[in-house]
Amino acid sequence: MAKMTLEELRALRENKRKELDKRDLSGKTMQVVIGMGTCGIAAGAKETLDAFLKDIDEHNLSDVTVTQTGCMGLCYVEPTIEVIVPGMPNVIYGKVDPDVAKNIVREHLISKKMVSDHVFDRPAADIMDRGGK
C-alpha cells in the first residue's frame, strides 16, 4: 500500500459520500456504542470495535455510526456495547467478542432480531419474548 496523502483521503471520502447521496437514508441511522473504559479495554473492546467496523463494511451497510463511551457499569460482562436501531428497543449487549460482533451485525443490524444470549440490559422480558419487536 502506497503512503496515502490527505488529498487522496479526501477524494475517497467524497466518492463514498456521492454513493450515499444516491440512497434515501434519512431517519435510518443505526448506532453502535462501545464501552471503552479500562475494564472494556482489558477485555478486548478495541478488537470488538475493529470487528464491528470491518463487518459493517463487508456487509456494505451505510449510515451506521460507531462511537465509544466509558464504562457502562457492567464490568463483569465486558466488552459491553449498546445498539440503537430505529424501531427497536435500545439494547446493551455483554461479552461481545469479535465473533459475537459479527452475529450482532448480521442479526440485529441487518435482520432486526436481538442476539438474546448476549442481552444484558434494557429490554423487558415481554419484549425479549417477541424477539425485540
Binding site: M4, L9, R10, L12, D57, D63
Partner: peptide, 17 residues
Amino acid sequence: VLGDLHSSDSLNLLKDY
C-alpha cells in the same frame, strides 16, 4: 478531511490512511 469521525465509512477510510 473526512467530514466526521463516527460513521463507519469514515472510520474505515481513516484506518486505511
